[in-house]
Design a protein around this nucleic acid. Sequence first.
DNA 1: CGCCAGATTGACACGGCTCAAGCGGTGTGG
DNA 2: CCACACCGCTTGAGCCGTGTCAATCTGGCG
Lengths: 297, 297
Amino acid sequence: MLRSQQTCRSASVLYRPEPFHLGKWPTVRSCAIKRVSDDEPLKCTRLWNSYYLSSEERRALQQAVTSRRSVNAHVDLVSEGELADSLLFIVEGWACRYATTIGGGRHFSALLVPGDLCNLEALLIDRPDCGVRTMTAATIVALPRELALALATQHSGIARAFTWLALVENAILAKWALSLGRRSAKEKLAHLFCELSLRVGAQEREYEVSFNFPPTQEQIADAVGLTAVHVNRTMQVLRAEGLVAIASRIMTLSDVPRLRQIGGFDPGYLHLDRVRANTQPPLVNPNYPRSRSRRGS
Amino acid sequence: MLRSQQTCRSASVLYRPEPFHLGKWPTVRSCAIKRVSDDEPLKCTRLWNSYYLSSEERRALQQAVTSRRSVNAHVDLVSEGELADSLLFIVEGWACRYATTIGGGRHFSALLVPGDLCNLEALLIDRPDCGVRTMTAATIVALPRELALALATQHSGIARAFTWLALVENAILAKWALSLGRRSAKEKLAHLFCELSLRVGAQEREYEVSFNFPPTQEQIADAVGLTAVHVNRTMQVLRAEGLVAIASRIMTLSDVPRLRQIGGFDPGYLHLDRVRANTQPPLVNPNYPRSRSRRGS
DNA sequence: CGCCAGATTGACACGGCTCAAGCGGTGTGG
DNA sequence: CCACACCGCTTGAGCCGTGTCAATCTGGCG
């Protein structure tokens, strides 16, 4: 939420935002990865549900994948510049792909919701260009890179599905860029919320949707290129107009058509027609605590 | 270069910028596609030069491709929402991928330089989410979608190369998003110029590079999310500091290390190590006229 | 019950946008 | 061969959307 051009003078005050790498986000002490029972860990995944896979290919994928692991919030799943040897699927919880500016400015290049593949680039690129960090407690599944490559070589459907995932991510990123470059704060938020409501598979009824929405205002700011303060003010406007409401991590959009109009949102770019409909996870998910970081030890 | 939040009141004045679709860019009357002799049209292409292809696969690609065609400047190669049935390679000249905001704001999601693939998404997505338009006269080569799919199915190297192209485009887009969201005008321009100097394969010597650079200031603005006026002022600053100079479509960066520092540029994300080095095209290319559009009808 | 992350508020500053001319070069029609 | 027409580049004045800085408030958790 810091902009780069601003120098980071105040190393003094305690809870002031600080450059990312200096620990504005809490440093992680234990990754607390523990195994969880599972049978079809990939089932709710966008890759799994894409129309490009045959059932045989689905089976092959399922066998190649590790079992579920649960991860704390604020954990780096992928660190910028370090070797990455697995594709990570986020089965439950939210994460983000982020990059930082020399000045400490932080920016998200993706918000990852349940079912998303966190780091497709690890398939072909060994040093990731940006990190991936959980925003909530999450459960993930890994597909070792070598296995993924082998599968993609043997099964053209799997290769095609990977390419498709990359193309959709591209389309989303292009829309984000459009927002970042040419939309006002209000439009940015409207567009983002419309997008997320669809991506998490929330069921709209009577122009209204509700869905789990763990990000803090600061994290929203890092996604749309604003300041946490300004996100706050803009949210107040949207709230005052009766368009959005957030209560205990659940976001409600009360007038989706209006929001779409404001944000200039057209769902086509998400290409949801190439995926089997995904059921929305339970509205209040006990595994979703935006676990507050315990202070330094 | 219009920002969306601004209403477009002045339909009166003559040379004022106008919403994109209303013809700020000249409307195209004739596509003027004419054949040109060629032998290995794909040779200078990033796909062709990627390490993922075997020589057999290169041959297969070469055979599948149409012969070169030359295209005028300001021509839509791909129109948003319309069916696209070919992958287009831009062999010579520059183009851009663009999208527009309801308010008429225009934004580029990519600048395409010689050797780039214009619309990889056409491989799997039939209605493109954004348009592609030439910025200069250009020569292009097409690979029919069905052929591309068949090749990707038969040759895993080709499939892999496609995926790789998508991933690199993604990485570039992510950096653009970082710029858009968190960098100042000066930083944005510095970063963009550093990126382009590498992508066009310009040879740096003694901290200095020169390369063909056809975009107008307005087009630069559409790439970095600024106004043409502000790009102009920022360019003046960079020029005054002796960092960049443009003369007759040739850009010279006189102090690349300094520019990289300003823009926070780290070339890793371009993953040039996965492509055979590409020779820089001749510095002044007679085919590069930023052909001015003749006026109406 | 105290702590702390996150949400909220207010005062103020500034980067970048808007509006409005003006300038120089270059194809083009007369 | 000249004179427009027109594109792209510049410049100046003024404004406003967002950022900055600094408190304060609030609810959940240990």
